[in-house]
Simulated assay, not measured.
Amino acid sequence: MTGTSSLITLNNGIRMPALGLGVFQSTPEQTAGAVASALEKGYRLIDTAAAYFNERQVGEGLARSGVPRSEVFVTTKLWMSDYGYEQALRGFDVSRRKLGLEYVDLYLLHWPVPTDFAATVASYKAAGRLLADGRVRAIGVCNFGPSHLADLIARTEAVPAVNQVELHPFFTQRALREAAARYGVITQSWSPLGGVNVYAAKDPSVAKSPLTHPVVVALAKRYGKTPAQVVLRWHIEHGLSAIPKSVRPERIAENIGIFDFALKTEDVAAIDALDTGVRGGPDPEIVDTRLFNLSIPD
């Protein structure tokens, strides 16, 4: 084991590792090995989703690792095609069966779907039933803006434990983080290294990564760390959870090597100043099943 993540306490008292392995865009052939490698190197949070089509391989990696189930925090997500109360319960059963687990640590709604928010609310109420039944340990959402959070909480009287959103030095989401903090919701960062600006760039010739920005490069040199380690440490300094994706053992090990140093306050501020206010991924206001026409097979 080469690293150990710090822990964040959720609003229901459950403790979640601050750093985890994300498996978005990890192929089924790559996923089991990446999960086993991450657990060997000290990761204890694995983040997947029904729509990633690799839940079975996450389960295989967990089993292959030999790490006790009680030591690993597993997150998966409900896809929009399964929104609705009964559909959500069925969708969870499919995910749990693919993972090969008796319970899931964190169950998230993947998008807010403003065009059919009633279905979103119904799905979240179903997640609440799963929580009450002990089939999940915490529930939350992804890609919710401040108004989505306020509406969901008002209509369900249940505060999400986590809101997982696009967040990196070029898109810091300060207003959203502050709103979530007022509710007691932990913000978790997807694409924490800003990779979405590269793989989803509308014009690849102008794709930009925070890891090549002169400020980040200079800080990495000063701290004797890599640019990725500096950026991931920036997330930790803000009290965020981050789930960087990698399938390369050396990069997986690099990403967790961030708990032996801290950034100075002025260096955190220097990275904060890189914010462009420009989202790299999809706008949650327009995401629905027409934009992403996926269905989840059993």
Rank of each mutant, 00 (worst) to 15 (best):
A158I: 12
T276H: 05
V58F: 08
L62V: 09
L89E: 12
G20M: 08
P112D: 11
A88I: 09
R56C: 13
R90P: 02
E71N: 11
R174Y: 03
G20C: 05
Y43I: 06
L89P: 15
A34M: 14
I14S: 09
S191D: 02
L10F: 00
M16G: 08
P227E: 15
D298V: 15
V136Y: 07
G281V: 01
P214A: 03
S37G: 11
H235L: 12
V58I: 14
G91Q: 12
A32S: 13
R64H: 08
A126I: 11
L232A: 03
V206P: 09
A122M: 04
V215G: 09
M80S: 01
I286Y: 10
A122Q: 12
F53T: 05
L19N: 03
N54F: 02
A50L: 05
R96S: 13
E102S: 13
W234A: 11
P169C: 13
I256F: 03
G280N: 10
M80T: 00
R97G: 11
K77D: 00
F261Y: 15
T31W: 06
K41F: 06
V198K: 04
L131V: 12
V58W: 03
Y183C: 06
R64T: 13
Y43P: 11
D82E: 12
L130W: 03
A126D: 14
G42V: 08
A126M: 06
S205M: 11
R97N: 15
A158R: 01
F144R: 09
T187Q: 03
Y103I: 07
N11C: 07
Q188I: 00
C142T: 02
I296M: 04
A49V: 01
A154N: 12
P17G: 05
N11Q: 09
G22S: 09
G280L: 08
L274I: 12
L130T: 08
R137C: 00
A218E: 13
F259D: 03
E102F: 07
L219A: 08
L291V: 14
L78G: 05
F92I: 15
